[in-house]
């Protein structure tokens, strides 16, 4: 499939693949579970401590701690089993969601790769900027243009130290490791300008190692691409 067909006549995707949407989905699920469980646990901690606070003249429990005496054992396996099950169920919920999304994402990545219907862009990180190379040899530095509604694969490496290629608004990123290749899939529905940032300390210029990801409509992209000598 040539690039113009890919960008302008892309296939309908059967799975939601915009990373930021998936990301927020899991993040919100985790946060809901965390807030509910956290409130229950910390709440019971406070309530228990206050309710069973020391009061003058209160009768001593039969198994109370005595100086120099080994305390008795308490707590049987039944309670432990119940607690274990509760914790495991909560974890399974979180784990399940993560695996499902991760699998979908991987499958999409692999099938796009096989079908070849993907725009591949090579990203080379260096101290302290990003270089992008398109299939037709066009190179840009510090900013990269991609078409909307099209699967894009960034193949990320570095020529010096380790960096992390991250696009904070789209909630994704991958390490840029010298002599190695990291893969980052994108599928962006909304045209616009997104910031690229380095998320791994890479020397004194780390703070300002930023770039721009510009998402164009299909036609705009094709025009830009051919004006740069591609097609």
């Amino acid at each position: 499939m040539n690039l113009e067909d890919l960008v302008l006549h892309h296939r309908a995707l059967d799975a939601p693949l915009m990373p930021s949407k998936e990301w927020w989905g899991i993040f919100n699920l985790f946060t809901t579970i965390a807030i509910v469980i956290g409130s229950i646990v910390i709440g019971s901690l406070i309530i228990a401590a206050v309710k069973y606070r020391y009061r003058e003249g209160q009768p001593e429990p039969s198994d109370s701690i005595k100086p120099g005496r080994v305390p008795s054992e308490r707590g049987g396996p039944k309670v432990i089993i119940v607690i274990t099950l509760i914790v495991v169920v909560a974890l399974m919920m979180a784990e399940g969601s993560t695996f499902t999304v991760y699998d979908t994402y991987q499958k999409f990545a692999e099938s796009s790769m096989e079908n070849g219907d993907v725009l591949k862009i090579e990203v080379t990180a260096f101290q302290w900027d990003w270089r992008f190379k398109y299939p037709n040899g066009v190179e840009t530095v510090g900013e990269v243009y991609i078409p909307e509604d099209t699967p894009v694969l960034f193949i990320v490496t570095s020529i010096d130290v380790k960096h992390k290629f991250g696009i904070p608004e789209l909630k994704t990123g991958v390490d840029a490791i010298p002599d190695d290749m990291g893969y980052l899939w994108l599928y962006v529905e909304d045209p616009g300008e997104y910031e690229i940032r380095c998320y791994e300390l890479c020397g004194v210029g780390h703070t300002f190692m930023t770039g721009k990801l510009k998402v164009l409509s299909g036609q705009e992209f094709v025009n830009w691409y051919s004006s740069m000598g591609g097609g």
Partner: peptide, 19 residues
């Protein structure tokens, strides 16, 4: 501990790492 579980998720981690 709870916020650690976020980091354990590969998908969330793609972004969270380094933030």
């Amino acid at each position: 501990g709870e916020t650690g579980i976020y980091n354990a998720s590969v998908f969330l981690n793609y972004h969270i790492r380094g933030t």
